[in-house]
Design a protein around this nucleic acid. Structure first.
Lengths: 353, 353
DNA sequence: TTGTATGCGTTATCAC
DNA sequence: GTGATAACGCATACAA
């Protein structure tokens, strides 16, 4: 039977501290600290070896908390996400993580699960943990909340959406261009009536911007177009409106395409169409979407893929530059989307058949 | 000499500390600390008000780092996730977050993105940040790595999969029962040949367990069954094997069902089937899966839904109990899955048609 | 009821 | 080159 080293309480064998290492190496804490911080030049090779041995023997890991307390930077970066259920967020997160790793930051990920209260709560927590900066992709945070960060000298970078009355670095999709790209594609494929479907704008600027871009494009092209607002929590009215629109087009007859403003909307609409038209719904009605979700290929749905990974990466880079002291005015980085054409938007036979 | 009231750089208005608050309220730090920790009874109402005013005026937020340093607990809980791309992980995470919130912990989320090196690195980082406990859902961590936590008195709870040679609390799906449930359903629906499709086991115990359960069930039922191992990074051979199997059944003819061990496998297989049989693939071949992904409904695929949210919640509860000093032997919590029947596994016409 | 002093694990300042 | 020693922001034993 192993009595496991004879820990005094037998419970929690306290982790070694810098003092323990110093004692073990027969030296002072300063030298240990120096070793840890790579001030390797000023250490005699002999002492250095003793330190290394001691560290290894005690399995010593410097305490980031204490470190952060002392030097005022703990390498923590807050990442507030409105909805991890949306693959967009996960993909952005991947970029964020990669960049953080590369630059030596540790992302403190906060998932608000679409609850505005959670967003506020997490934002508070983040200041409490003294993150050095925050990347925010939120649903309903207001300007004031973010101001407390900026005013406190903590840089904020916005992702996907801006916050009214608050100017900071922001990175996201080039929505106008992406929407135009998609709409033009539909028109080129011969659709002469496009229905844009989007969630209630609320505080989410990207929704508003996309819808505006849709109107602009449709207007410029002289194509018929309209917008339906869908509340995912209460989708029935919007779905009925869609049905009505499709039925009217059937009678007309007109070639109509549905254009979902993001993946969650697209899924909801696709489910409805499948229910109404059966497994072959894609051949009856064209559905296109911003966000290239994993099931898009399965449904044969044309999409605009967002450069999610790059968005995440850029966000961290922006933050990093600020943390390094960059003092320039707020920047905006709009990355282009990529049209992924699939069968759903290929020319359909006219609905009369 | 106090120079520091004149923010020299004007840039980062240093956050208020407990000392600032004490000065502002005209009292000592102790009273502030008492106020913060709810020892509200021992404070004169008058002082209490001054403190409240001071805190509000300075927008003071206690520094969790310093706090944690002093009392030895920082309320941080590590959550290592193998793959956030898998909706399973996100759902578990939701449960974890909710429970953490309820119990006053802050989850430090680490996403290894299926890279074993990342898992190791993050585990190191977690000890560095002195998390009080860890919840682990990993791809390839070995026993030794986790031992350093346990030995250091940091409780570990495993999710979905166990780690060979390492005994701790673990919570996940009741795999044997779930697989039996699904398999029995298939047999009852008249399928007389079931193909189980699973990723290479590697260190992932749940894969092994599911496959074993499949063999057991199929054996007990006296039904024909086989297993195909698919490497998602190199799926061609497995997909060819599936094709061959389906072709053979066509000739026989036999009613064969495909049973994917999890969502990523199901998606890969579904994509392949769609490519091969067109949009109506569901009517040609039956596909069932563990994990009820968001597109399952869209594809009309029968699944076993995991109690993901509860899994996450239980994991945190287990951890919490350990953190409160519970000393019982390692526990195992296996939660039941729920069969979600959809059209894909309804009796199909025999393949000859 | 309130305040003083000490220490948590680290880094920074300054001696030697 | 090396090592005391004083903070960092907070909690607590102890004194008042």
């Amino acid at each position: 039977m192993h009595e496991e080293q004879h820990p005094m309480t037998s419970a929690a064998a306290r982790r070694a501290t810098i003092t323990d290492v110093a004692r073990e190496a027969g030296t002072g804490k300063t030298s240990i600290s120096r070793y840890l911080n790579g001030e390797t030049s000023v250490l005699s090779p002999e002492l250095r070896e003793r330190i290394e041995a001691a560290i290894a023997k005690l399995d010593y890991r410097p305490n980031q908390m204490a470190r952060g307390l002392k030097r005022g930077r703990n390498r923590l970066v807050g990442m507030l996400l409105a909805d991890l259920t949306n693959p967009y967020s996960v993909e952005v997160l991947q970029g964020v993580e990669a960049a953080c790793h590369a630059l030596g930051y540790m992302p403190l990920i906060c998932h608000a699960a679409n609850e505005i209260d959670m967003e506020r709560r997490y934002l508070q927590l983040l200041t409490t943990y003294r993150v050095e900066g925050v990347i925010v992709n939120a649903l309903g945070v207001k300007e004031e909340l973010l101001q407390t960060f900026s005013l406190g000298g903590i840089p904020v970078v916005l992702v996907d959406r801006s916050v009214e009355g608050f100017v900071t670095d922001m990175v996201g999709l080039d929505n106008p261009e992406a929407v135009a790209l998609a709409t033009r594609h539909l028109v080129e494929e011969g659709f002469d009536d496009v229905v844009f479907i989007v969630q209630p704008f609320r505080r989410v600027s990207s929704r508003r911007v996309r819808e505006a871009a849709f109107r602009d494009t449709i207007g410029a092209l002289g194509t018929k177009g309209s917008t339906i607002v869908i509340d995912l929590a209460e989708a029935a009215p919007a779905l009925a409106a869609i049905d009505a629109h499709l039925d009217a087009a059937d009678a007309n007859p007109q070639r109509v395409a549905l254009f979902a403003a993001n993946a969650p909307v697209a899924l909801r609409v696709a489910l409805h169409l499948k229910e109404r038209y059966g497994a072959n719904w894609q051949q009856r009605v064209a559905l296109m979407s911003i966000d290239d979700s994993e099931w898009a290929e399965l449904a044969g749905m044309t999409t605009v893929r967002q450069p999610t990974y790059d968005i995440g990466r850029r966000a961290v880079e922006f933050l990093h530059e600020r943390l390094e002291g960059a003092r320039m005015p707020a920047r905006e980085c709009l990355l282009p989307g990529e049209l992924v054409v699939r069968s759903s938007t290929r020319r359909k036979q006219s609905p009369g058949t």
